[in-house]
Simulated scan of single mutants.
Amino acid sequence: MTSQRPRIVQAGRLLSTLERRLAERYDTTRLVEQADQRAWLAANGAGVTGLVTSAGTGIAADVIAALPDLRVISSFGVGLDKLPLAAAAERGIAVGYTPDVLNDCVADLAIALLLDIARRVSEADRFVRRGGWSAPGGKAFPLARKVSGAKLGIVGLGRIGRTIARRADGFEMAIRYHSRRPVADAPWQHEPSLHALARWCDHLVVITAGGAETRHLIDAEVLDALGPRGFLVNVSRGSVVDEQALVRALAERRIAGAGLDVFEDEPRVPAELLTMDNVVLLPHIASATEETREAMAARVLDNLEQFYADGTLLSAAPLPETASG
């Protein structure tokens, strides 16, 4: 008997509870379990109407090309740089993602990294663990930097950027932001020049979108503008920062330090960073709390269910405009 449930394809591994719910509600095939994914797509791609992936996994354009009946993509996460948005727009494929539900946790982690690197929290932990505090005649732990009242620059004032700014208000920080244009109703000062923002601030937090337009937006010149008293925090995408320029700036103490949740070639982290005390390294965990990941999973399902019910999405990703013929 033929299943009446919509046929969907799952690209990559997802939260176990989400995988279970997908299997309960849809006729689901996990591509990662297919010995020859291309062969499976060629033989079975027709009739698949939905695809589920994540911001980290994404999906190749040739995969959706092998799904002639694909109508909807539902992605777990807010990053869109690994999704073939132009190809989806050309075919009229709806793309859903999971904004808003992760704003708080990403903003919390950005502030945690800012506090950690400025107050030398992780460095101090290592100092205590290796016996530096208790060693007879040992050196005193070096002084840190004050966060309250410091100057914060935010690169990208979207949903998460605004949430970070509100957190920083609680620390009585002076706040400015950089974006292509001023954000309506934002109470903080817009700085049209990224270099000027970097020169002004003590902490530069990067939370702009990834993709070709922002690749290496934070380059050697921006880092030099940030200067030897400035800290960089990146909770956006690794591609936004020129990683080799950052490694050099940290090694040469041309910036004070960095807190990094993302990297250019994850999960690979430049070996030079692993030995530096003026950098905090995290394994891309900004949204990784039980509560937020479950909320993201629920949004993936809600996007699918609403689409199959009425052709709309609860959270539709912005798609590029297609050329008119």
Results as ranks from 00 to 15, higher is better:
residue 199 R to G: 04
residue 143 L to K: 04
residue 156 G to R: 14
residue 67 L to M: 10
residue 234 N to P: 06
residue 297 A to I: 03
residue 74 S to I: 08
residue 43 A to E: 15
residue 166 R to P: 03
residue 161 G to R: 02
residue 269 V to P: 09
residue 205 V to F: 01
residue 111 I to E: 01
residue 73 I to G: 04
residue 173 M to G: 03
residue 164 I to T: 06
residue 63 V to S: 06
residue 302 D to V: 01
residue 234 N to E: 09
residue 165 A to P: 03
residue 96 G to T: 06
residue 30 R to W: 14
residue 188 W to A: 08
residue 202 D to I: 10
residue 169 D to N: 12
residue 282 L to G: 04
residue 297 A to C: 09
residue 301 L to G: 10
residue 94 A to D: 12
residue 133 W to L: 12
residue 93 I to P: 11
residue 241 V to P: 11
residue 239 S to G: 14
residue 103 N to P: 03
residue 86 A to M: 08
residue 235 V to K: 05
residue 182 P to Y: 05
residue 150 A to K: 11
residue 77 G to R: 06
residue 179 S to R: 01
residue 225 A to T: 05
residue 117 I to V: 15
residue 318 P to G: 00
residue 10 Q to M: 14
residue 175 I to Q: 13
residue 58 G to S: 14
residue 226 L to F: 13
residue 81 D to W: 10
residue 196 A to H: 15
residue 239 S to Y: 07
residue 230 G to K: 06
residue 193 S to N: 09
residue 292 T to K: 02
residue 96 G to C: 08
residue 167 R to L: 05
residue 156 G to C: 06
residue 283 P to F: 03
residue 99 P to R: 06
residue 155 V to A: 02
residue 319 L to Q: 07
residue 325 G to V: 11
residue 157 L to W: 03
residue 56 G to L: 05
residue 94 A to C: 07
residue 219 D to A: 07
residue 186 A to D: 08
residue 205 V to H: 00
residue 174 A to P: 00
residue 40 W to I: 01
residue 149 G to W: 06
residue 78 V to C: 01
residue 159 R to N: 14
residue 214 T to D: 02
residue 170 G to Q: 05
residue 112 A to Q: 08
residue 124 A to R: 12
residue 27 D to W: 05
residue 46 A to Y: 00
residue 198 A to Q: 03
residue 154 I to D: 09
residue 179 S to K: 00
residue 193 S to F: 10
